[in-house]
Nucleic acid binder design. Sequence first.
DNA 1: GAAAATCCAGAGTATTTTAGTATGCTTTAG
DNA 2: CTAAAGCATACTAAAATACTCTGGATTTTC
Lengths: 140, 140
Amino acid sequence: MRLSSRGEYGVRAMIHLALNYHQGFIPLSSIASAEDISQQYLEQIFASLRRSGLILSNRGVKGGYTLALPPQSIYVGDIIRVLDGPITPVGCVSDEGDEDDSRCGKSNSCLARNLWLKLRDHINQLLDSITLQDMLNWKQ
Amino acid sequence: MRLSSRGEYGVRAMIHLALNYHQGFIPLSSIASAEDISQQYLEQIFASLRRSGLILSNRGVKGGYTLALPPQSIYVGDIIRVLDGPITPVGCVSDEGDEDDSRCGKSNSCLARNLWLKLRDHINQLLDSITLQDMLNWKQ
DNA sequence: GAAAATCCAGAGTATTTTAGTATGCTTTAG
DNA sequence: CTAAAGCATACTAAAATACTCTGGATTTTC
């Protein structure tokens, strides 16, 4: 039950953008160095975030990235699902839509399946209840 | 956020043992074939479960495995932590004991860290609230 | 309009983890 | 004694992960 580094880095970078919301576009290089993340790796991560519409970009000198929405409208669940794919504790509960097409067909696996579904939904519920702004407010 | 096959298989096998509680010792071969899991792989999994005290074994003919406690006293959290290691969404929240020795030392990472802690605890809470018996009762 | 700063894209690679096999030994009932 | 079972450890193949590399495209500034 571990997040990928993409998810971890992505959340940290998004917090960085949230802290600098209203400061205009922030160059990726400054985020990468502040968060100690490889710049090229972070570029890949930001490409996913941009394509999914969570951030906006400007090219050229004075370019950079900024949140597409205010921090109170961006949920960590969205960030993590974009970067790590849907929360799927085991293969047979792949996604919300096709809940019943990928059964393992085995004897007691249905009993276990209920657990995986609960686990999946439980994790999603938490991640979909926390916004970037919530995290900023945790600052002691 | 995916469970390992060890965790998945282990939970399924423990459900199998729970269903056959009071039937005495069940040979691993029958569990492996019923659940369609490689016998040798399942042996490794059961070795961990036995060393952790969740199951008991008998050797020789008529040997096999059985739950060390009744199904209502075994929590899925225990099974999964034995087989997958402690729930650790990211490295810096490695375990309950040493919460503050493995900080990343980076600027905003503490804000993210609160999230990882919440996530870790949230998952553990769910898994520690469900027993094998609970899962048997889900049988429709 | 050249140069520099920035984003953008896709291929390639090295490491680690995972999931499983292989081999062989030990114990016990009958 | 033999067959059925558990026990232990080493090995390996495949997949996923976490990056790096290379080269471009856009935009501001001088």
